[in-house]
Design a protein around this nucleic acid. Sequence first.
DNA 1: AAGGTGACTCTGC
DNA 2: CGCAGAGCCACCT
Length: 101
Amino acid sequence: MQDEHKQRLFTLIGGIPAGKVAAYGQLADLAGLPRQARAVGRLLKELPKSSTLPWYRVVNSQGKISFPYGSQKYTEQKTRLQMEGVIFIKDKINMRVYQWA
DNA sequence: AAGGTGACTCTGC
DNA sequence: CGCAGAGCCACCT
């Protein structure tokens, strides 16, 4: 994937307001990368632990966290979102309510 | 170098 | 709600 797209993705993700979330595919589309949701996942995977990017505000299109249920990462992401007011019902977010843009 | 994998997603049954 | 199939594609084996 080109640096240009990476930049656009970083900007987009950094622009997601607290209490809101975006799906991988949605971000890919907005960055000009249709059908490349996986590319967004790959990008986030390489983020340094020190990154300030709100990576936890990115969930899958079903409103669920894309980490194994109960894993450390899963719990961290869910906790962070809950701290911003996002409500989980059956481990799922109502995208109609929290989806950004 | 061929084949498996995965922070995905949509369609269809 | 769940599972299968297909598209997608950079990375690992």
